[in-house]
Amino acid sequence: MSIGTRSTLLHLGLIALLFVLAFVLPSYHQGNLARIMVLATYAIGYNVLFGYTGLLSLGHAMFFGAGMYGLGLAMQYGGLGVIPAFVVALICAAVLSAVVAMLALRTIGVAFMIVTLMFAQAGYLTVLYFGAWTRGDEGFVIAQSARQIAGLDLTQPTTRYLAALVLFSAALLITARMMQVSFGSVLIGVRENEERTRMLGYDVFRHKLAAVIISGTISGAAGAGYAVLFGYVGATFTSVQYSIFPLLWVLLGGAGTTIGPLVGTLFMFYLIDYSSGLTNAYMLIAGVVLVLLTLFARLGLVGEIRKRWVAWLP
């Protein structure tokens, strides 16, 4: 069995498992897993840039936010339905990531991280500045009656779970496929040795640009999905913390692996969920995990498994 077939089976098996879980999980965990799948979609988007292309962004919350506010504002003030508003959200995220990429990709390394951080900070402040529409930190709620696609009620828990699964599966399969074609190999080439890749005749800038746009648009899709499935749009989701989260999830799960983003998000979500029952300083866990990963497991969970036991893991 070739590696390509194995990884396709792995992904389809994972999706099938998640599908079955929709009907067996108790409602509390069903709700959690729906949320985790949407956030893991965000992590998958982040992984395209960080894991595969080797560019560490500290500003992805602006893309998540572009999707979230693109959809939220289009529904709230434009009166659009879910599907057209989702398209608006994707366009917002794609345009924003293209503009940011054109500027930020002129820098490398630490400067790239800080430039993305600054752009995201400007984005967060912009949301606050237009508080009359965005309701700032307080945010706004998307009416339950509007959250429907062709008669399907997205507020109904199982429907919502399955919608989240569709979003997650699309992102997973698209990125997995992307990494099987030569475009993906070139991204890895850029990550491993940019100058060598250029001197093999690849346009490094255009590949990086495409990576930022794909990454930003998937992140935006996750933001839009979050807004419509959980009915809330707020400035917190554009703050620095939400730029750090996908980095944390991807690092924990395994950068540059297809299922790492889900694994990382799942672990971190439940870690924070349990610890927030014990203390209000639950972000302490995030800090400790980041430090431990930096010191002892740079490859993340799936990355370490791949290195030690299962070399074919995609």
Binding site: V110, L251, L284, A286, G287, V288, L290, T294
Partner: peptide
């Protein structure tokens, strides 16, 4: 950078 982000939260 990742490590000092961790220290920040700690």
């Amino acid at each position: 950078i990742v490590g000092t982000i961790g220290v920040l939260y700690i």
